[in-house]
Amino acid sequence: MSHTVPENANDHCPGTESETAGKAASCAGCPNQSACQSAPKGPDPDMGAVNERMGCIRKKILVLSGKGGVGKSTFSAHLARALAAQDKTTVGLLDVDICGPSIPTLMGVASKSIMSVTGDGWSPVFVGESLAVMSIGFLLESPDQAIIWRGPKKNGMIKQFLRDVNWGEAATEAASGDDDDAKLDYLVVDTPPGTSDEHLSIVQYLKGSGIDGAVIVTTPQEMSLLDVRKEINFCKKVGVKVLGVVENMSGFVCPSCSTKTMIFSPTTGGAEAMCEAMGVPYLGAIPIDPALAKSCDRGKSYFEEAPDSAGVAAFNHVIDGIKAALEAEA
C-alpha cells in the first residue's frame, strides 16, 4: 500500500495530544506517525511540576539537526559557553541525546557525576560560576556504557530532567547574594538528530512553559540538507519557531594563507539557498577548524583556545544572530 503524504498534511495535523494522533488520514506517511500513535493521551499528571520547574528559566532554545555528525552538540556546547560569557548571565545546558551523550566530554566534565539529590531536585554539574550542565552521562558507571532503551524509557528520562533538575539553584549560585527570585537566563537543549520520540517529548513537555525557538545545524551538502528540510517542517508542524539555520563545516580556512576550500561542496546551493526557499532565517556559516576538534576532545572552550581564528569570528556572528532573534521576540 502506498503511503503518500498529502500536500496539506501540516494543515490537518491533529496534534500530538489528540486522541486521533497517528491515526488520522493526514498522519499517513508522517515520520512521527508511530510515535504519536503510541504516545499516552490526555493530561500528564507531571506537567504541573515540569511547568513550575521550567518557570525559573527566561529563554529556552532547542538545538536540532536532521542528520547526525553535523556538529550539533559542538555547536550547543559553544552556544552555551558564549551566552554564559555575557556579564551577569546564567546558562543551563541540557543534553537530551540519551543514547549518545557527548556534552560532558565537550564541556570537560566527563568525570563528574550528579553530586547532590535533595528535596529540591538534582543539582546540575557546574562549568564555572554561570554555566551548569545536565546529561545522562553523569549517571553512567562508565562513559563506554551503552544505553539500550526503548522510546518510553528515554522519554521518561527527558521528563525527569525537566521536572527534577534544579536550574534555579544554578541561577542563585551565580547571583550576588541570596536571591530567591533568581532565574536562569538561558536553557540550551541539545537534542539527538532526527524528528522522533525525544523531539516530540521535549516539545510536549515544554509546551506549558514555552519554547523560545530552535536553531538547526546542518552541513553544506545535499545529503544533510535533505534531512534538515524535514526538521524545519517538524518545527512548523509542532509550532516551534525556527530562529535560524547554521551551516557548519562550511569549508576549510587555511590558518597560514586564509585560503578557503569547500571540502563538502554545496551542490544545491547550501544552507543559505535552502533557507531562502523555505522561508527561514540563515544565521551564517562556520568553517572546519582542527583547533575546534582539538578543543572539543579536551573539553576546552574554542573561544579561549583560538580566539583570533576565522572559526571563532564565524561562531560569534552566528550567536549574535541568535541573540538578536531572541530579543526580537521579547
Score class of each variant (00 low, 15 high):
residue 4 T to S: 14
residue 12 H to Q: 07
residue 13 C to Y: 04
residue 14 P to Q: 03
residue 16 T to C: 02
residue 16 T to M: 05
residue 18 S to K: 01
residue 23 K to T: 03
residue 24 A to L: 01
residue 26 S to N: 00
residue 32 N to C: 14
residue 35 A to H: 07
residue 36 C to E: 04
residue 37 Q to W: 04
residue 39 A to F: 09
residue 44 D to T: 09
residue 45 P to D: 14
residue 50 V to K: 02
residue 51 N to P: 04
residue 51 N to Q: 12
residue 52 E to R: 14
residue 53 R to I: 06
residue 56 C to E: 10
residue 59 K to L: 06
residue 73 S to R: 06
residue 73 S to H: 08
residue 73 S to M: 11
residue 78 H to P: 03
residue 80 A to M: 02
residue 85 A to W: 03
residue 85 A to K: 13
residue 91 V to E: 06
residue 92 G to R: 05
residue 93 L to T: 04
residue 98 I to Y: 02
residue 101 P to D: 12
residue 102 S to F: 02
residue 103 I to D: 07
residue 108 G to Y: 09
residue 121 G to W: 08
residue 134 M to R: 01
residue 134 M to L: 08
residue 135 S to V: 15
residue 137 G to S: 04
residue 139 L to G: 08
residue 141 E to V: 08
residue 142 S to W: 07
residue 145 Q to I: 06
residue 146 A to M: 08
residue 146 A to S: 09
residue 151 G to Q: 11
residue 159 K to C: 03
residue 161 F to Y: 12
residue 169 E to H: 10
residue 171 A to C: 08
residue 172 T to C: 10
residue 173 E to P: 00
residue 177 G to R: 07
residue 186 Y to S: 13
residue 187 L to E: 12
residue 188 V to A: 07
residue 198 E to L: 06
residue 198 E to S: 03
residue 198 E to V: 08
residue 199 H to Q: 13
residue 199 H to A: 05
residue 199 H to G: 03
residue 200 L to K: 03
residue 204 Q to M: 10
residue 209 S to M: 01
residue 211 I to Q: 02
residue 214 A to W: 07
residue 216 I to D: 09
residue 218 T to W: 02
residue 218 T to I: 04
residue 220 P to A: 11
residue 220 P to R: 08
residue 221 Q to F: 02
residue 229 R to C: 05
residue 229 R to K: 14
residue 236 K to R: 13
residue 237 K to Y: 00
residue 240 V to H: 03
residue 240 V to Y: 00
residue 241 K to N: 14
residue 241 K to V: 10
residue 251 G to M: 10
residue 253 V to D: 10
residue 253 V to C: 11
residue 254 C to L: 04
residue 257 C to V: 14
residue 258 S to L: 04
residue 267 T to W: 02
residue 270 G to I: 12
residue 271 A to N: 12
residue 274 M to Q: 11
residue 274 M to S: 10
residue 276 E to F: 02
residue 276 E to M: 12
residue 282 Y to H: 13
residue 284 G to N: 12
residue 285 A to I: 07
residue 286 I to P: 08
residue 288 I to H: 05
residue 289 D to I: 14
residue 291 A to V: 15
residue 295 S to D: 11
residue 299 G to F: 07
residue 302 Y to P: 04
residue 304 E to V: 06
residue 305 E to S: 15
residue 305 E to T: 15
residue 308 D to N: 14
residue 309 S to F: 02
residue 314 A to D: 06
residue 319 I to D: 06
residue 319 I to R: 02
residue 323 K to F: 05
residue 325 A to W: 01
residue 326 L to K: 05
residue 330 A to I: 14
